[in-house]
Design a protein around this nucleic acid. Structure first.
Length: 865
RNA sequence: GCCGGUGUGGCGGAAUGGUAGACGCAGCGGAUUCAAAAUCCGCCGAGGUAACCCCUCGUGAAGGUUCGAGUCCUUUCACCGGCACCA
């Protein structure tokens, strides 16, 4: 990392007032003042409404980045505005502190994950404090603290007792590098989301949360999340994936012993007469039975499992099947027999793990049927066409009406949705299966074979089976004496940690050595913040008062997993008595912010290989060191490997926290990406310096009056109104634009000292959510009472927002041709008269009379000629 | 492939269906200065015009609705993001 460079004279030189803008001095001073006043400590009082603002807590990597700065500044603006607006604000901060990087660090350098993690927390906190966020640090928590994870264990036990947790054998994604299981959601392109290793499929006994039982409820409740981005809601809806279909059985002709049918699920029962084969998953019980008996099957199945789920594999891999030789009978015609294939593209986790293939109307089935020379029988054809040989599957939209040539229910002309419902009704009436609603959402596998996570508080006893630990024995602490020199789970190989007494019968027993997925930790921290030191997971009075979170702020990358898990946990905690019903949706409003991006600078070697350069190494498109021209890639996500990073510490050291805060909010709407530019940061620093100078000058003025006082005060009220509205609607870039405008007005005005001082105090207040330190400084310079951070938010006087006269543009046939200024209450008829007398209008009319005149009061006049 | 989102000056972006380009950056000109930095003032979509005026064009493209469209509708292109052998 490069050291903060010398300042390019932004606020030092040439500014020869007695007190120049020294960000560092100001920021330290006011942070100390806030600390002393304790104004950010959340208190529960009956006299004020509450407001809970929360940003997604960070992983303690040890270093904050610009994304953090933007995220926490966004939340801070909301929090500070709400404090000033008279709310008891809860704005806490903590650490998502369990997880693999700590173990990786321990493996790499031989230390202990706890040492590494707590050092990082200390470092990161030290980096965060100078940003001046209005956080209640007294509520700080770390998920790796026994104080936290002990309560998580209590919660887990309650959930276990409530039947929300269970154990089952399951095919899981095994990360061979990290030696751990990954949730389906944590497998990205067939690779582990952290290690990047190709994921294998293995069968293990795993702990699961019954989130799928809540699929319907979680889906329906999305409609009530009015203050969530519709994009996130849609992503969750798709993830939960509701489908309507028919579940039914194919009877087996000569099945292995004990297996006389194959249960399938289909969303297209209307194509039943186009069935040409039955496919089962390699993990289907029938496949397993055959695998045990037939080495050929075993080989095929093993091949499927090895092929795994990597994207290339799936892309390249043909649809492959293994003909089991078994036959099933078609439910409509028992003499019609279909072959049973084990197929590599069928997932055991979805539906029943078995399908019937209708090659005519499913491209995947079509390819499969072509490969294995299975019949391809169309069930319907496009309107106005006749049956013809197919070269690819015909898959129209379900809303499209088609002509059924092998339909068996409803009419001939139907759209897909109607046909499916008719087919389900027909099948149910004829005793062939039943209509069911299924969800794509699967249960949440939470077991991890890792050390640095919350131990699952259960005990395995030879006599009593799997029993929860007694609550009085919580927390089940992680042992300190562990090593990480070999992969795998240190808990598993610890000499004594596993040994314990059965909580039930007292005999010697073994602890569970799985720890919890870190998504568990972050699924309830929002509730824990309301009583972070309590000896129960939550405290009724506190959660009743503070929950739910009024504004949650974080990245879109958590749109599905974290947010869905949290919604599930809120329900589970309600069932187990840890949260009130009103907090069933934990996050009332969600805001997802964009990234901070930066140009990438690179030079290329002769062979075309890129070398990346830090922004500090580049000036004017040239490398400082060699003068070589650099290639510039615009607007890329900040990434250490591409070196297009800007260290917040350098920015704070060079320009101050207020500059960093202002700039990350100024240039783009918060939900969009913002590009960090050196010139933009410098311009921000210049502007803040200018504000300081203007305020210094005004503070030194006499309290005179002038004819322009009213104009300035009108501008002030206009600014109060605009900025307040912009803040409330997350238009922070717009709020900042208005603050620029108001500052310009303040600089140019000839108003008297009294009015200018009043306006400057208002400016300080309006700036305080964005640049709180400078705002305090100005406030105190101008004789503001107490801290501006604690002062009541200013209110715009409606009377001062009304202009006496308005300027109306005049359009002729929709094109602007001139303007008139008239009294605000002038009648439409009067306006018409004035418009018609206007020179530009006369010229355009050229003697003719207008066909039509539209007068929109206070807005515009349009003449049609 | 499906589902979203976004396309506006050199750049980031602003515009309840009502003056397109607020505000900022960059750039240009000027004041100040011995000079520079800093600061202040002004200009800044394209084209036409000697020029103020004024005129023409202009919000990815093509249509449409409307007195009036960046905004609404249809079609289309490009880019970004999410999802997927999901039965």
């Amino acid at each position: 990392m490069t050291a903060p460079g010398p300042l390019p004279g932004v606020f030092i030189q040439g500014y020869d007032h007695m007190s120049r803008y020294d960000a560092s001095e100001i920021e330290h001073k006011w942070q100390a003042a806030w600390e002393e006043a304790g104004i950010f400590r959340a208190t529960r009082t009956a006299d004020k409404p509450k407001y809970y603002v929360l940003e997604m807590f960070p992983y303690p990597s040890g270093r904050i980045h610009m994304g953090h700065v933007r995220n926490y500044t966004l939340g801070d603006v909301v929090a500070r505005h709400k404090i000033a607006s008279g709310y008891n604000v809860l704005h806490p901060m903590g650490w998502d502190a369990f997880g693999m990087p700590a173990e990786n660090a321990a493996m790499a350098s031989g230390g202990h994950p706890a040492t590494w993690t707590y050092q990082n927390i200390a470092d990161m906190k030290a980096q965060m404090k100078p940003l001046g966020w209005s956080l209640d640090w007294s509520r700080e928590l770390a998920t790796c603290d026994p104080e936290y994870y002990g309560q998580q264990q209590a919660l887990f036990i309650d959930m276990l007792n409530a039947g929300l947790v269970y154990r089952k054998n399951a095919v899981v994604n095994w990360d061979p590098v990290d030696m751990t299981v990954l949730a389906n959601e944590q497998v990205i392109d067939g690779k582990g989301w952290r290690s990047g290793a190709d994921v294998e499929r293995r069968e293990l006994t795993q702990w699961f949360f019954k989130i799928s039982e809540f699929a319907g409820e979680l889906l329906e409740a999305i409609d009530g999340l009015d203050d969530w981005p519709s994009k996130v809601k849609l992503m969750q809806q798709n993830w939960i994936g509701k489908s309507r279909g028919l579940q039914f059985s194919f009877g087996m002709v000569d099945g292995p012993e004990g297996i006389d049918h194959v249960e399938v699920y289909t969303t297209r029962p209307d194509t039943l007469l186009g069935a040409s084969f039955v496919g089962i998953s390699p993990d289907h019980p029938l496949a397993k039975r055959l695998e045990a008996q037939n080495p050929e099957v075993a080989a095929f199945v093993a091949e499927c499992r090895k092929g795994g789920t990597t994207e290339e594999a799936l892309e390249k891999a043909e649809k492959r099947g293994f003909d089991t030789g078994l036959k099933v009978r078609h439910p409509f015609d028992t003499s019609w027999e279909l072959p049973v294939y084990i197929a590599n593209f069928i997932l055991m986790d979805y539906g029943t793990g078995a399908i019937f293939g209708c090659p005519a109307h499913d491209q995947r089935d079509f390819e499969f049927a072509t490969k294995y020379s299975l019949p391809i029988t169309p069930v319907f054809v496009a309107e106005g066409t006749d049956e013809a040989a197919l070269t690819e599957a015909y898959v129209p939209m379900k809303s499209e009406t088609v002509r059924y040539i092998r339909g068996f229910a409803g009419g001939e002309m139907l759209n897909g949705t109607e046909a499916v419902e008719e087919a389900i009704r027909f099948c149910e009436n004829n005793g062939v299966g039943q209509g069911v609603t299924k969800y794509r959402l699967r249960d949440w596998g939470l077991s991890r074979q890792r050390y640095w996570g919350c131990p699952i508080p259960v005990v395995h006893c030879d006599d009593c089976g799997t029993v929860p630990e007694k609550k009085e024995n919580l927390p089940v602490r992680l042992p300190d004496d562990v090593t990480f020199d070999i992969p795998g789970n240190p808990l598993d190989r610890h000499p004594t940690w596993r040994d314990c007494a059965c909580p039930h019968c007292g005999k010697p027993a073994r602890r569970e050595t799985d720890t919890m997925d870190t998504f568990v930790d972050s699924s309830w921290y929002y509730a824990r913040f309301t009583a972070p030191r309590a000896e129960t997971p939550t405290v009724a009075a506190e959660v009743d008062y503070w929950m739910g979170v009024d504004q949650y702020v974080g990245g879109i990358e958590h749109a599905i997993l974290h947010l869905l898990y949290s919604r599930f946990f809120a329900r589970a905690m309600q069932i187990t008595g840890h949260l009130p019903v009103k907090a069933i949706e934990p996050f009332k409003a969600l805001f997802t912010q964009g990234m901070v991006t930066h140009e990438i600078y690179l030079t290329r070697a002769a062979d075309g290989r890129a070398t990346y350069h830090f922004p500090e190494e580049v000036e004017g498109g040239l490398l400082k060191a060699t003068g070589e021209k650099v290639e510039i890639i615009p607007s890329a996500k900040m990434s250490k490997s591409k070196k297009n990073v800007v260290d917040p510490l350098n920015i704070v050291a060079s320009y101050g926290a207020d500059t960093a805060r202002w700039f990350v909010l100024s240039d783009s709407p918060p939900e969009r990406d913002v590009e960090w530019t050196a010139s933009g940061a410098e311009a921000t620093a210049r502007h803040l310096s200018r504000v300081h100078r203007i305020a210094t000058d005004i503070a030194a003025m006499d309290n005179g009056t002038s004819a322009e006082d009213q104009d300035l005060l009108r501008a002030m009220h206009r600014a109060i109104d605009d900025v307040s509205k912009a803040i409330e609607s997350f238009g922070f870039n717009a709020a900042i634009a208005k603050l620029y405008g108001f500052t310009n007005a303040l600089q140019k005005t000839n108003a008297g000292g009294a009015a200018r001082k009043e306006a400057t105090r208002a400016l300080a207040q309006l700036m305080s959510p964005f640049t709180p330190h400078l705002a305090e400084e100005i406030w105190s310079m101008l004789g503001g009472e107490g801290l501006v951070s604690a002062a009541a938010w200013p209110k715009a006087d409606p009377a001062m927002l009304v202009e006496d006269s308005v300027t109306l543009p005049i359009q002729i046939n929709g094109k602007r041709r001139g303007e008139i200024t008239v009294g605000k209450d002038l009648s439409a008829a009067e306006v018409e008269k004035i418009v018609l007398a206007d020179d530009a209008v006369q010229r355009a009319l050229n003697g003719a009379a207008p066909k039509k005149i539209i007068v929109v009061p206070g807005r515009i006049v349009n003449l049609v000629i």
